[in-house]
């Protein structure tokens, strides 16, 4: 029997003990994301001062991959500029498509544990939910 599962410790830990799953009172960026296939939903909130993401949080519910991925993303982008966050998001989304260099993978830190999800097309939408939501949020900001 094939017994390997994709749920390693980093993932389950972020799912069960998320650091950033809470409200954020002073947020100035906010966006909802939904993945209808799993019924995953998150509300992402960020505090951005002078182009730097100084704080971030999310609330929502859904499968472990969607929730853990959002938590891991926040770990990575808090303290970075908007542009830097968008660049990391681009790397992350390329990683999922299997198009990434080893150096880039390293930049993703813990988020790189989601690399193997590219073999599970049904779960890709879960993994990218938080990242897509962030991209949408910044894109919308640019347009307005």
């Amino acid at each position: 029997m094939q017994n390997k599962t994709f749920y390693n410790e980093i993932l389950t830990d972020h799912n069960l003990h998320p650091e950033h799953k809470h409200e954020l009172e002073n947020a100035n960026f906010e966006m909802d994301g939904v993945n209808p296939s799993c019924g995953d939903e998150i509300r992402l909130k960020l505090r951005v001062d002078d182009g730097i993401i100084t704080d971030g949080a999310y609330v929502g519910n859904g499968c472990a991959i969607s929730q853990a991925s959002a938590d891991i993303m926040l770990d990575l982008i808090i303290g970075k500029t908007k542009e830097e966050a968008m660049r990391l998001s681009d790397i992350f989304l390329r990683m999922i498509k299997g198009n990434v260099t080893d150096e880039e993978l390293e930049e993703l830190e813990e988020a790189s544990v989601l690399q193997d999800i590219s073999h599970m097309p049904a779960r890709v939408k879960c993994a990218v939910l938080g990242w897509h939501t962030m991209e949408e949020m910044f894109k919308e900001d640019k347009e307005s």
């Binding site: 029997m1 599962t5 799993c38 019924g39 499968c63 472990a64 779960r123 879960c126």
Partner: peptide
């Protein structure tokens, strides 16, 4: 309790058990 149905189905599937998850 505490595990989303899609995660349940996925873990079962890793053990070669096919079930349905969702609404």
């Amino acid at each position: 309790e505490g595990v989303h149905p899609h995660d349940v189905a996925y873990i079962l599937s890793a053990d070669n058990i096919a079930v349905r998850a969702g609404h």
